[in-house]
Write a protein that binds this DNA or RNA. Structure first.
Length: 262
DNA sequence: ATGACTTTCACGGAAAGA
């Protein structure tokens, strides 16, 4: 099975590139973040015409997450929203079971700055995510688990262009990295890309400004966290930088993970 | 360098992203 996670920075603005991704890679399951759709404005019909069923949590102008499932696979037992999210209206979490695996599309709050109230909210969201991961494990002991999305945390300094440029900023602070590790521990999850590529220096996000992509100044903040029970089935994991190029790109590139299931 | 670029909402420019 091919699984993709991608922060699209507006699904409506990115529909041509999403369509290109679905055509080119034919993924079985896709997790999207920053869809920026109202519930009524989600392009479910357009995606159905491309062969994909949608599960989505849509909060309007900001945020929004979705799972796309390639027909004839089916998304079952969808859960929209994360218990304990301090601002549930922002629609940053959705879940569904596909082919016996529980998939989560997650969009962790940015945090803005270490002094901002948003930073505390970010840590609270990650704590709620860890609790939910443990609850999924308890409720669905026979299902595999994949939690993927934009975590807005670079797990280690290897995931940065230059660690010196990030001192005192969000995305790299010890509490954020500790919260990510706690989520992975509570769900018994592995960072699929890093598991398969222990030394690779690659990014999933590059600032639109100042030619950052051209200079390869970015961060690896989009992750596919797979349950340890799926680790032996991990075949490959890679970042498709081509989707950060050419016309109207998102500022994030899609992360592709191939795994054997069942 | 209080920047840079892109999107939304709405029709100018603020807010947010990371």
């Amino acid at each position: 099975m091919l699984f993709v996670t991608w922060n699209v920075n507006s699904l409506r603005a990115r529909l041509p590139r999403v369509s290109e991704l679905l055509d080119q890679h034919c993924p079985d399951v896709v997790a999207l973040q920053e869809t920026k759709c109202t519930p009524a404005g989600f392009p479910a019909d357009e995606l159905a015409a491309l062969g994909y069923e949608s599960v989505h949590s849509s909060g309007g102008q900001w945020s929004g997450v979705a799972l796309l499932v390639r027909t004839p696979l089916q998304a079952n037992d969808a859960v929209l929203g994360l218990a304990g999210d301090p601002v549930p209206s922002e629609a940053r979490w959705c879940e569904a079971t596909v082919a016996g695996i529980r998939f989560v599309s997650a969009y962790v709050p940015n945090g803005r700055s270490l002094e901002s109230p948003e930073y505390g909210r970010k840590l609270a969201f990650m704590d709620a995510a860890a609790k939910r991961a443990a609850a999924i494990r308890s409720e669905l002991p026979d299902q595999g688990l994949v939690i993927a999305g934009d975590f807005n945390v670079a797990p280690a300094d290897l995931d940065l262009h230059d660690p010196r440029a990030h001192v005192g900023l969000t995305h790299v602070s010890a509490p954020e990295r500790d919260a990510l590790e706690a989520l992975m521990a509570s769900g018994a999850l592995l960072d699929a890309y890093r598991h398969l590529h222990p030394e690779e220096h690659q990014f999933t996000w590059w600032d639109y400004r100042a030619g950052s992509f051209h200079k390869d100044i970015g961060m690896r903040i989009d992750l596919t966290l797979v349950g340890r029970e799926l680790a032996d089935g991990l075949i490959a994991c890679g970042i498709d930088r081509d989707f950060r190029k050419r016309f109207k790109p998102s500022d994030h590139a899609p992360l592709l993970t191939w795994l054997t299931v069942g």
